[in-house]
Design a protein around this nucleic acid. Structure first.
Lengths: 187, 187
DNA sequence: GTCTATAGGAAGATAGAC
DNA sequence: GTCTATCTTCCTATAGAC
């Protein structure tokens, strides 16, 4: 997963992977029938893990609270452990159409869970969003964006970054008292 | 650029590119010394274009106004024309270290322009952000995120999406009256 | 379960005819 | 400027020894 993340699926050879784990290329085929299946399994396990993590998150109470906990779950699963890794959505394009479809199903489960929180917050008046689908897409790009730049041991601790993201995402969906509420959205 | 965006640099062969433009593979080498230079030139022109577009944007007045116009410039350059294309940041990993460094310089110019707006808005009290660098990173992921999902002819017009992004980004940096300002950021 | 060896094909890039 | 043909290298995947 680390090699695919760093260089991209097509740029990584089975020989490189083999060298990384200390075997010869042929030995890899004892563990995967081919390179494509290896990619699919990695992406699939990752997506499944994120969905599993959600099941253990506390998604009760107000929409604001549920949103906060969704973000926490996302952070904890993807960046929590010492050997946490993440292959960006970009690698989905390297899947065969059949495998891509299978992953789309999982991806939709995850993103729909987020969208439902946004919809509920909108309906209850807690959130000020005028398009739940669009807002969800924005939040997903925010959540995935952090995975592409955050590296442990940098200027900011993971807790600090998580707290910042919870705040900025909260503000993005909250319109209470926002002075620009009246101003024209476009020129 | 379209092929690299769709499949990734390493997954696209010179033969595919040649077929796309209607020549044989060898003929491509009349236009580029090699594949790596082709990638670098495409990414470099794209980055340079975004910086040029900024120069024509109106970045005067309040920080909020400058931020709105930065977002407009980003949208107009990357998604404006009929043949607008965009290679995601992901492709930067396929550059040689020397080429990567050159692009980093350009990328920093662009992102620093955004960060300066955030810093100024923070200093003037217009924005409620506690870490300008981190906020800039979030805004960049939002701005680049739209490029990965937006396709002309979809449910929402470009103007509509642009307006939505201007609003949500405005809210993300504005803290006026945000009821959660007091609540603990992390559990 | 891992190795060496290799089949079979596709990749980037070049040479030389036209 | 473009073609065909080709060099060389690297790729995925397999075969068979140990």
């Amino acid at each position: 997963m680390r090699l695919f993340t760093e260089h991209g699926f097509a740029a990584v050879s089975m020989r490189q992977i083999a060298a990384e784990v200390g075997v010869q290329a042929g030995a890899l085929y004892l563990y995967t029938p081919n390179k494509q299946t290896l990619l699919f399994n990695l992406l699939s396990e990752q997506m499944q893990g994120a969905i599993e993590a959600l099941k253990h998150a506390d998604l009760t109470g107000s929409a604001a609270r549920r949103l906060d906990n969704f973000v926490r779950s996302h952070f904890q699963f993807h960046m929590g452990g010492p050997d946490a890794a993440f292959m960006p959505y970009t690698e989905l394009r390297n899947l065969t159409p059949a495998n891509y479809e299978k992953l789309e199903v999982m991806r939709r489960i995850y993103e729909d869970a987020l969208e439902q929180i946004i919809i509920d917050g909108h309906d209850s008046g807690e959130f000020d969003v005028d398009d739940s689908k669009l807002t969800t897409l924005v939040l997903i790009s925010i959540l995935n964006g952090v995975l592409s730049w955050y590296r442990p041991g940098g200027r900011l601790s993971l807790d600090r970054v998580e707290a910042h993201y919870i705040e900025i995402i909260g503000k993005a969906v909250c319109g209470f008292g926002y002075e620009g509420a009246e101003r024209p959205a476009a020129e």
